[in-house]
Structures are given as structure tokens and as C-alpha cells.
Lab assay of single mutants.
Amino acid sequence: RKWEEIAERLREEFNINPEEAREAVEKAGGNEEEARRIVKKRL
């Protein structure tokens, strides 16, 4: 699934746990840019 690939990239890029990465992607509706913004806000 594409969402899992996005979550994996976010996890590696921001050094967050898989659960946090998945939550961000879900919140963003699968949009990678939006997920990235969500993760950055949390850091």
C-alpha cells in the first residue's frame, strides 16, 4: 500500500516510530506533503 511507503519514508527521515508515521499519513489522507507538515509540527 502506498500509505505504508510514505509512512516508512517519514519514519526514516524524521526518526519517528512507525505508529507516529502511520498516524500522520492517515490524518493527511495519504498526502505525503501534508503528512510531512503534520510530523514537523509534532517535533
Rank of each mutant, 00 (worst) to 15 (best):
residue 41 K to Q: 11
residue 31 N to M: 08
residue 15 N to Y: 01
residue 42 R to T: 11
residue 5 E to T: 14
residue 27 K to D: 05
residue 7 A to I: 15
residue 17 N to L: 14
residue 33 E to Y: 03
residue 35 A to P: 00
residue 26 E to R: 07
residue 23 E to G: 13
residue 35 A to Q: 00
residue 40 K to M: 03
residue 19 E to M: 13
residue 7 A to N: 03
residue 2 K to A: 12
residue 25 V to W: 03
residue 9 R to A: 13
residue 40 K to I: 13
residue 17 N to T: 05
residue 27 K to A: 06
residue 5 E to M: 15
residue 7 A to F: 00
residue 20 E to Q: 11
residue 5 E to Q: 10
residue 43 L to M: 06
residue 29 G to H: 14
residue 3 W to T: 15
residue 4 E to V: 04
residue 16 I to E: 02
residue 35 A to M: 01
residue 40 K to H: 07
residue 3 W to G: 14
residue 36 R to F: 08
residue 22 R to S: 02
residue 2 K to C: 04
residue 13 E to G: 09
residue 41 K to I: 01
residue 37 R to Y: 10
residue 8 E to A: 11
residue 19 E to R: 12
residue 13 E to V: 04
residue 14 F to T: 11
residue 8 E to V: 09
residue 3 W to N: 05
residue 30 G to L: 04
residue 39 V to W: 05
residue 34 E to T: 13
residue 31 N to P: 00
residue 4 E to M: 14
residue 6 I to R: 05
residue 38 I to L: 12
residue 18 P to N: 01
residue 43 L to K: 03
residue 21 A to L: 06
residue 21 A to D: 00
residue 22 R to Y: 03
residue 39 V to I: 11
residue 40 K to D: 13
residue 26 E to H: 06
residue 18 P to G: 15
residue 12 E to S: 11
residue 34 E to F: 05
residue 25 V to G: 02
residue 24 A to E: 13
residue 28 A to S: 10
residue 37 R to T: 15
residue 22 R to Q: 11
residue 8 E to D: 08
residue 11 R to M: 15
residue 11 R to E: 09
residue 15 N to S: 13
residue 21 A to H: 01
residue 28 A to L: 01
residue 30 G to N: 03
residue 31 N to L: 10
residue 24 A to H: 04
residue 23 E to V: 06
residue 23 E to Q: 09
residue 26 E to G: 08
residue 29 G to T: 10
residue 26 E to N: 10
residue 1 R to V: 13
residue 23 E to H: 07
residue 12 E to Y: 01
residue 26 E to L: 06
residue 38 I to K: 12
residue 1 R to G: 07
residue 6 I to T: 14
residue 38 I to A: 09
residue 42 R to L: 09
residue 10 L to D: 00
residue 33 E to K: 02
residue 38 I to G: 12
residue 8 E to T: 13
residue 41 K to C: 12
residue 36 R to H: 15
residue 12 E to A: 08
residue 31 N to S: 11
residue 39 V to S: 07
residue 14 F to I: 03
residue 10 L to A: 01
residue 27 K to G: 12
residue 18 P to R: 13
residue 9 R to H: 11
residue 29 G to A: 11
residue 5 E to V: 10
residue 24 A to C: 06
residue 4 E to D: 02
residue 38 I to N: 13
residue 7 A to Q: 07
residue 7 A to G: 07
residue 13 E to L: 10
residue 14 F to N: 11
residue 5 E to K: 11
residue 38 I to E: 14
residue 15 N to F: 10
residue 40 K to Q: 14
residue 12 E to R: 11
residue 3 W to A: 15
residue 11 R to H: 15
residue 13 E to C: 11
residue 31 N to A: 14
residue 26 E to V: 08
residue 20 E to A: 09
residue 29 G to P: 01
residue 32 E to K: 09
residue 13 E to P: 00
